[in-house]
Amino acid sequence: MNDHPPLAISRRRFLILGAVTATAFAMPPFISLKAYAAALEQPAMAKVTLEVNSKPQTLEIDTRTSLLDALREHLHLTGSKKGCDHGQCGACTVIVDGRRINSCLTLAVMQDGAKVTTIEGLGMPDHLHPMQAAFIKHDGYQCGYCTPGQICSAVAVLQEIRDGIPSHASASLTAPPQLIASELQERMSGNICRCGAYSNIIEAISEVAEVPA
Rank of each mutant, 00 (worst) to 15 (best):
M1G: 11
P5K: 06
S10M: 00
R11V: 00
R12F: 02
I16H: 03
I16P: 00
L17G: 11
L17E: 07
A19Q: 08
A19D: 02
V20L: 15
V20H: 13
T23R: 13
A24Q: 15
M27K: 15
P29M: 01
S32K: 08
L33N: 03
L33Q: 02
Y36E: 01
Y36S: 09
A37T: 10
A37Q: 04
A39Y: 00
A39C: 01
A39G: 09
L40F: 02
P43L: 01
A44N: 06
A44C: 09
M45E: 11
K47D: 15
L50H: 07
L50C: 03
E51I: 03
S54I: 00
S54W: 02
P56S: 02
I61M: 02
D62Y: 11
D62G: 09
L68N: 08
D69T: 04
L71S: 12
R72A: 00
R72F: 00
E73C: 07
E73H: 11
H76Q: 12
T78R: 11
G79E: 06
K81Q: 06
K82W: 11
G87Q: 14
C89L: 13
C89G: 11
G90V: 01
G90E: 13
C92L: 08
T93E: 05
V94I: 07
V96I: 04
R100Q: 03
I101E: 06
N102H: 14
N102G: 03
N102M: 01
S103H: 03
C104W: 12
L107D: 08
V109Y: 08
D112G: 02
A114G: 08
T117W: 05
G121V: 01
G121E: 15
L122E: 13
M124Q: 13
M124S: 11
M124Y: 04
P125T: 06
L128V: 04
H129T: 12
M131G: 03
H138T: 07
D139S: 07
G140F: 12
Y141S: 14
C143S: 10
Y145P: 15
Y145M: 09
C146A: 12
C146V: 10
C146N: 13
G149H: 13
Q150S: 14
I151V: 15
I151H: 08
I151G: 09
V157C: 14
L158R: 07
I161N: 06
R162H: 10
R162Y: 11
G164P: 13
S167E: 06
S167N: 05
S167D: 07
H168I: 10
H168K: 09
H168T: 12
H168P: 04
A169G: 02
S170F: 06
S170P: 03
L173G: 04
L173Q: 11
P177R: 06
E183Y: 01
E183I: 09
Q185L: 06
E186C: 15
R187S: 08
M188G: 07
N191S: 13
R194Q: 05
A197I: 05
A197P: 15
I201N: 12
I202M: 12
S206Y: 05
S206Q: 13
E210F: 12
P212L: 14
P212N: 14
A213S: 14
A213N: 09
A213V: 11
